[in-house]
Design a protein around this nucleic acid. Structure first.
Lengths: 162, 162
DNA sequence: TAATTTTGGACTTTATATATCCACGATGTA
DNA sequence: TACATCGTGGATATATAAAGTCCAAAATTA
């Protein structure tokens, strides 16, 4: 019952995106280098976050990623399920592949489902906003990349042009 | 964040022991067959439960296992930690072998520690008694073994003799 | 002593998490 | 249109942990 590296990567990425001054598009490469995450693995995580509707991706030059929602609208439950799939404590009850032979009459299932429900509620009540607020400013050693990056979100540029 | 098979085995074993009419000593073999748990693997789990002070073991003929405490005194947290080790959601903060480069300033750590504390509290408030109460009588297909077993706990016999 | 039952540890197998790679698709710019 | 940029998708490899096996030793009883 430990937070996986993958989930850690996802949360760190979202913190990083959420802390950006304007809603710029951030390159995956920048995140990987800044957060010391293997680029090619991060690529996978980003896809999952995009698929879950948490972040927004743009192709091509000046492309990259940005949050799709406000940090206060992104819950830890959403992030968890984006990378780990549905949050379930037990794997039984008619699920194909289950090896439990006591499905019909198992005191554990009820109990764990209750724990699960409480845990889900806890994670639903914690938002990216909360996490960001506890996160201090990036230590200097980390803030070395992309100082010169002043690109803004394409969408914003389009809006600015009209 | 899924309940491992090992923890499932441990809980099922404790339910089984807790449901015994008198505090007889139950053979590991009986538990394994009744609960469809690989005997040689169960041996490991039993050792962990003994080590954690949750069950009591007796060697030799008429030996076996029995609960060391009342079901109402055994919490899910104890059982979890008996087989999985200390319940921790994140692995960072000065722990040797940690790969986290943001230890000094990580918003996640605080948050996850809070979640962890809440989860621990939840598990501390659920006892084996609670689990047993939700568990129905064993289905017939399972109740095939040891009908003839009428041995009682050695301790009880000693007491009975005095 | 012989039978029984738990204990301890070494070992193997299997599953899952993590990481890598490369070709493809989409986008902007000249 | 051509080209550089950058995310996407899937196949594959590697590392780590979970699950399972095996055997000999220690404790107990009769």
């Amino acid at each position: 019952m430990i937070i996986s590296k993958t989930l850690d990567y996802a949360v760190r990425t979202l913190i990083y995106l959420g802390k950006q001054p304007s809603r710029r598009s951030i390159l995956m490469k920048e995140i990987a280098e800044n957060q010391k995450i293997p680029l090619s693995y991060l690529a996978k995580v980003m896809r999952q976050l995009v698929k879950a509707g948490i972040i927004f991706s743009e192709f091509g030059p000046n492309g990259g990623y940005s949050l799709k929602k406000m940090p206060s609208e992104i819950t830890l439950k959403q992030v968890y399920e984006a990378v780990e799939g549905e949050l379930k404590m037990i794997e039984c009850f008619d699920t194909p592949g289950s090896s439990c032979v006591f499905t019909s009459c198992c005191g554990q299932a009820d109990i764990w489902h209750e724990v699960e429900a409480k845990l889900i509620k806890i994670l639903e009540n914690i938002t990216l906003q909360d996490v960001i607020e506890r996160d201090c400013i990036y230590p200097e050693k980390v803030l070395t990349i992309n100082k010169q990056n002043t690109l803004i979100n394409k969408q914003e540029r389009k809006n600015a042009n009209t």
